[in-house]
Every structure is written in structure tokens, then in C-alpha cells.
Design a protein around this nucleic acid. Structure first.
Lengths: 171, 171
DNA sequence: TTGACGCCCATAAAATCCCATGATACTCCA
DNA sequence: TGGAGTATCATGGGATTTTATGGGCGTCAA
């Protein structure tokens, strides 16, 4: 297991602690801290271990250090980030900054995204999930409209599974 | 045998476990977990082993990582998925997410789809199967109307092929 | 001195392992 | 070729181990 996959909702205790899902801890290995940044697009936190931090720095290194672009990115990716210590039981304490940015109060949705994972306020996550599924459904259909080929290989809802193409009406 | 073929209905026990059909386990080899995604089109789960996961990631890798398109797809294929551990007896336990999405309660229809397979609530599966067969029949007819040639190559007998096709009596 | 934070222990619920059983399908031999 | 012996499989259930979560303490720093 080397990627963050799937999602789980965990509770935040009175001390402000939350358990990182066991499967995510497995990916992190023995690392004792998490690198977390505030998404500039959505009310979500994106986090990961050293590898995640590296990939961000990597991106910065490809920009001109004197550019405005670099200044902004670096500010967000490094300056406006958090280092969260992972305690003995595999829990972290969310900073005020994180809580304000996400709206998280007593529950956190951990969502695997491959080489990093996200922290959402459950309701926000649910809403976003629906938007995403909707968007994907539309993309598949527009693809399928003129070209069955491409779509045919896609599982997820396989447009091909129902040769008719009419087989919608899924209750 | 290296593809998932045919279908079977298995019981979900009190602990929420279901046996993966032996023939599917044979295809999975010694893998101990299943990658499962919620279809965006229908109340069905699509699952498979590492190969299945890879094919999805492969697809993602062809998109621009910064695009909205990529964001949506990766969210659904990775974040909104499940990793199901296969126990020593070749069983898995279905997540709440899966049960909600499919309507599965005490029985699961495993349907082979080649390089992946699906999990349906039996009644939904039955209904879908009939719609699909219906659709195919119509297509054949419309094809046959003006052109016998093409159709003639089709095995099609699907209509008569009771060997597996109408395998109703799900023994 | 008062918190915030790290570490340790406790515990209920959930996940996993291990062994048992009934039912089939399959083999092999008289 | 009939049929008993055997292997495979789906399924159950008890025992064990993980997990997530709660709470107690001591420490270090304002």
C-alpha cells in the first residue's frame, strides 16, 4: 500500500485531537509529522508526509525565484502551511487556522487523493462529492456521445455496459 | 482463466461478510485487497485487483493534473473509492458507503465484466439485465432491417443462448 | 500558575483470523 | 457406470487483534 485511497470520517475529541485513519498511517510509515497546506481553491486542507512536501518544493524550484509567481506560490505552499505532529496513537491536533479555513468542528472527513490526502468538513465533503460525481457523469456522456470507444474502457459506470445507451433510468 | 466472467449471487452474513466467487478469486491470484469504485451512472460497484486500479490511474495520467477534469475524475476514482481487504477465506466486508450506493442488504450479485467485476443488489441486477437484453435485441433488429450481413456475424444467439445468458434460475 | 501539549493507559466497537459444517462438484475404481 | 470417497466452496461463529476515542498526568513555557 503506497497511496492514499478512500475516505473516512473521524471524530474530533475535546482536546481537539483526531485519529488519522489506519490505512493512511500505513502509507505514512514511521513519519511523525504531517505537512499540510490550505487549498486556495476550496475549504479543504491538503496534507501528506515528506513526499508531499517534496513534490511542492519541486514545483517551486521550477519557477523563477524573483518572479511574482514564485513569491505567491511559495507564500502559500510554505509560509501558509502547517506542520502537524502525529502523537503516539496516530492522532493530530488541528490548528485554528485549519479549523477556520475548513469549517471543521467535531468531525473530519479524510479523503485519499493518491500521493496526498484531504481534510474536509463532512458536509462540505458530501456536497463536493456530489458535484464531482455529477461532473464526471457529464464528461462521460459528452465523450460517449460522439465516441463510444474511449469511454468504453472506463469502468465507472461503463457507458458500454448498457449497449442501448438508453439504459438510464437508474432508479 | 484470467478474466472475470459470469455471475453469481452470494449471501452477506451477520458480520457483513460476503464470499468473493471462487472463480473471481482465481483471477485475483494472491492479492489481498480489492479496489472498488462507485459507478457514477448506476447503483453498482465496480471492482478489481491491482490491475484494475492501475488501469484507472493510467487513464488519469493522461489528463492535465491541474485541470478541473482531472480533479473531478481523480476525486471519484481515488477519493470516493474503497479498498476492501480480502480475509483468509476470500471474503470481504462491504462498507456503509457501498451498501448505501447499491442498496445491497443480505445478498450480492457478483457480475464479471472482463478486467473488473460488479457488485449489484440482486433485484437491481435482474432489472438491469432485462433492460440490457432488451436493448440489444432492438439494436440487432434495427441493424438487421437494412443489413443482414453485419448481423449475421454476431453470435447473438443471445436470445436463445440459455447456456449462460438467461441463466435465470440462479440456482 | 495556568494552559497547551506530549505520553501513557483504558475500553468498546470493528476488523481479522481460525476452525467447523453442510452442500456440491469431482474423481476414481470396482 | 453407479456410487462411495474426496476436494472445493460458501457460510457460520468464537476467539483475538486493531482501531478509534476518551481521559489522566506530568512537563515546559508564558
Amino acid at each position: 500500500m503506497d497511496r492514499f485511497v478512500s475516505n473516512t470520517i473521524n471524530r474530533v475529541d475535546k482536546k481537539g485531537r483526531v485519529s488519522i485513519p489506519a490505512s493512511f498511517r500505513a502509507v505514512l510509515g514511521d513519519q511523525s509529522k504531517l505537512h499540510a497546506i490550505l487549498s486556495v481553491e476550496r475549504p479543504v486542507i491538503e496534507a501528506g508526509g515528506a513526499e508531499f512536501l517534496e513534490s511542492n518544493l519541486q514545483r517551486l524550484s521550477q519557477m523563477d525565484p524573483l518572479s511574482e509567481e514564485y513569491e505567491m506560490w511559495s507564500f502559500c505552499l510554505v509560509g501558509d502551511a502547517d506542520e502537524l505532529k502525529i502523537d503516539t496513537e496516530g492522532r493530530i491536533i488541528l490548528s485554528d487556522q485549519i479549523r477556520e479555513h475548513t469549517g471543521i468542528t467535531d468531525q473530519v472527513a479524510f479523503v485519499g487523493r493518491g500521493h496526498f490526502f484531504q481534510l474536509w468538513e463532512p458536509a462540505e465533503f458530501q456536497a463536493y462529492r456530489e458535484r464531482a460525481r455529477d461532473a464526471v457523469r457529464k464528461m462521460r456522456r459528452s465523450l460517449g456521445a460522439g465516441n463510444t470507444q474511449k469511454v468504453s474502457d472506463f469502468p465507472t459506470g461503463s457507458a458500454r455496459s448498457d449497449p442501448s445507451g438508453s439504459g438510464e433510468g437508474q432508479s
